[in-house]
C-alpha cells in the first residue's frame, strides 16, 4: 500500500466515523464500505451478506448489482467461503479458487466463469456472535496482502457497528430487529429497482445506478429514496 492509498484509507475512516455520529442510512453506509474495499484495497469486487432470522445469509450491499455477482455471493453463502466464515466466525482465505473442496463445486465454477481466482471472507462479528460476512473477490490468484486484510477487517467492524447502532428505525436494543431492519431496507431497494426499471424502461442494474445517483445528488439516504419510490411519493 503506497502513501496515497494510505492517506485515502485514513480519510475513508474519518468519513465513516463522521457518518456514525449522525443519523445515517445503514444501506448507504454498507455501500460506502464495499466501494471503499474495491477502490482502496487490492480487490475486484466486494459484498456484504447478513444473516436473516433463519440464519440464511443475504447480500445487502455489493460493488456491482449485476445479478451474476450477487448470485455468486449467494452461492458462496450456501456452500463456499462465505458460509464457512460465518459459521466459524473466522477469516476464510482461498488463494486459488481452482483448488477448492469439491463441496464448493457450484461456487467454484461460477467464480471461475466470472473471472475470479481468489477470495477472502471476513466475519462481521460482535463479541462472540457473527452477524454476517464481508467478501473480497480478486481476479488474480494468490494470498491477499496482510495490510489489506487488516483494513478489510476494520471495514467489517465498522459495518457491524453501523448495523447494530442504526437508530433511524425505532430505538431498539434487540439485535435481531436491527438486523431485520437492514435486511428489510434491502427488500425495499430491490422493489425500487423494479419500479424504476419499469418507469424508465431500463435494466434492473441501470435502475439501481439511477436510484443511487438521485440519492447522492439530493443528499438523501438510499433507503429513503427507495421507500419513496415504492410508495410512489417520488417518481423517477
Amino acid at each position: 500500500m503506497n502513501d496515497t492509498a494510505q492517506r485515502e484509507l485514513l480519510q475513508t475512516f474519518v468519513r465513516l466515523a463522521d457518518t456514525l455520529v449522525d443519523d445515517y442510512d445503514v444501506v448507504d453506509l454498507l455501500q460506502v464500505l464495499v466501494d471503499a474495499c474495491r477502490d482502496l484495497l487490492d480487490t475486484t469486487a466486494a459484498g456484504i451478506l447478513l444473516a436473516d432470522s433463519r440464519g440464511e445469509l443475504e447480500v445487502v450491499a455489493s460493488t456491482s448489482e449485476a445479478s451474476r455477482l450477487v448470485e455468486l455471493m449467494q452461492l458462496s453463502a450456501e456452500a463456499g467461503p462465505c458460509i464457512e466464515s460465518f459459521r466459524s466466525g473466522r477469516r476464510v482465505s482461498v488463494p486459488d479458487i481452482q483448488h477448492t473442496d469439491d463441496a464448493w463445486t457450484q461456487f467454484r465454477d461460477a467464480a471461475l466463469a466470472h473471472g475470479f481466482r481468489s477470495v477472502d471472507a471476513l466475519p462481521l462479528r460482535l463479541r462472540d456472535m457473527t452477524i454476517g460476512t464481508l467478501n473480497l473477490m480478486r481476479e488474480e490468484p494468490g494470498a491477499a496482502a496482510e495490510e489489506d486484510i487488516i483494513a478489510a477487517q476494520a471495514f467489517a467492524d465498522v459495518a457491524t457497528i453501523g448495523i447494530l447502532h442504526e437508530r433511524s428505525i425505532r430505538e431498539s436494543s434487540v439485535l435481531s430487529e436491527q438486523l431485520q431492519a437492514a435486511l428489510n431496507s434491502r427488500i425495499v431497494i430491490e422493489q425500487a429497482k423494479g419500479v424504476v426499471s419499469h418507469t424508465r424502461g431500463v435494466s434492473i442494474d441501470e435502475a439501481f445506478l439511477l436510484i443511487r445517483q438521485y440519492a447522492r445528488s439530493h443528499s438523501m439516504g438510499l433507503s429513503v429514496v427507495a421507500a419513496r419510490l415504492v410508495d410512489r411519493s417520488l417518481r423517477l
Binding site: 422493489q191 425500487a192 423494479g194 426499471s197 410512489r232
Partner: peptide
C-alpha cells in the same frame, strides 16, 4: 427472493 422483490416493483409501478 431478490428477483421476486424486483418483480414486485415492476408490477406495482405498472
Amino acid at each position: 427472493r431478490r428477483l421476486i422483490h424486483q418483480a414486485t416493483g415492476v408490477v406495482l409501478a405498472s
